[in-house]
Design a protein around this nucleic acid. Sequence first.
DNA 1: ATGTAGACCGTACGACCGTGCGTGCTAATT
DNA 2: AATTAGCACGCACGGTCGTACGGTCTACAT
Lengths: 199, 199
Amino acid sequence: MTNRRTRSDGERSRDAILDAAAELATVEGLDGLSLARLAEVTGMSKSGVFGLFGSKEELQLATIDKARHVFITEVIGPALEAPPGRDRLLRLCVGYLDHVERRVFPGGCFFASVASEVSSRPGPVRDRVADEQKQWTGLLTENAERAVEAGQLPTDTDPEQLTLELSTMLTGADIAYLLHEDPAILDTIRTTIHDRLGR
Amino acid sequence: MTNRRTRSDGERSRDAILDAAAELATVEGLDGLSLARLAEVTGMSKSGVFGLFGSKEELQLATIDKARHVFITEVIGPALEAPPGRDRLLRLCVGYLDHVERRVFPGGCFFASVASEVSSRPGPVRDRVADEQKQWTGLLTENAERAVEAGQLPTDTDPEQLTLELSTMLTGADIAYLLHEDPAILDTIRTTIHDRLGR
DNA sequence: ATGTAGACCGTACGACCGTGCGTGCTAATT
DNA sequence: AATTAGCACGCACGGTCGTACGGTCTACAT
């Protein structure tokens, strides 16, 4: 009797499934997340996977949450080493581009690849994605404000406008990079952002 | 063996189908283009629709071509009224944002909404989308070069870099606008681009 | 020792998908 | 008038999807 199942086993299975789900969703889409494929990857049965979440929507929401944690670990966390303001803002942007190039998710930025899919389908899933996006841009704005206050950026800089300028460039770069598989695109955007925020 | 056939009927049906397909694809995705729904919308039978294209891939390629024509009519055509260089570049960018807001396609820019879907699935469809994208950015670069030559932009401006900066912002703005349904995003990007290209 | 909760499996159902087959129908060519 | 190409149809196939239910096993409290 070495193999026993407990609640902690369920959590481990859940986490393993979500790990695979977050990666799969960036390739197949959030709606294309199939129980069958997830079961195949994790070595479980379809119903075993299904039972752990109860519905497909719950699975999707949990997947979004998992992707958020990965994003925090891979991008936001490291950027917090830099002091608030321009430096941190720069680290956030470059960190984003790096995690795309590093293929943390096979289909690039999770939220970018999922956004265009859910944007035309109102509901809890779409709202959750929109919320995560807002948190991200909020973090950018926060540091843009600090940068202006600290005189690291021109005083007539509008933090909200700068945030939108940066965030749209980032997701746009993600998409263009994936479509053309050309790392030069990321490099160009990196220097563009460096220029924009001043050396 | 003389052939004369009744093209008109087939051609008309084909065009009606593609019209619906281009709109549908921006909502359901290129892969989510279902024969059943297309048949339902156009009032034809599933097999009638299928027979006109022969395969789903052919339907997808034809849909991309149709979307290209719509984009040319709605965005590129009007922008050609402006003289080459900075003015035309500006008209192209603003025209793009306008066509998104005007909901020429219900799911925003056709190519943006389709790019993230096909980018992870190599093949003719993905290549076709990438080609169209390249034509679009090529048009931007062309006018950026003219603008620099004409002294409408700083002489140290790199046309390729400017193109990437603009094109990523445009598709990024499209996605953000659709996700949050907030027209202010488009306005902000409009002024950002105006600022970037100088008044 | 026993009861119970929850993880997990096997199987099945209904829906929807893309794809073919066989067949009228229309209209241009003969 | 006869022929014929090809548009459009109804129908049915095999496959995959999400979902549901019943059953089995394990861990833990009692």
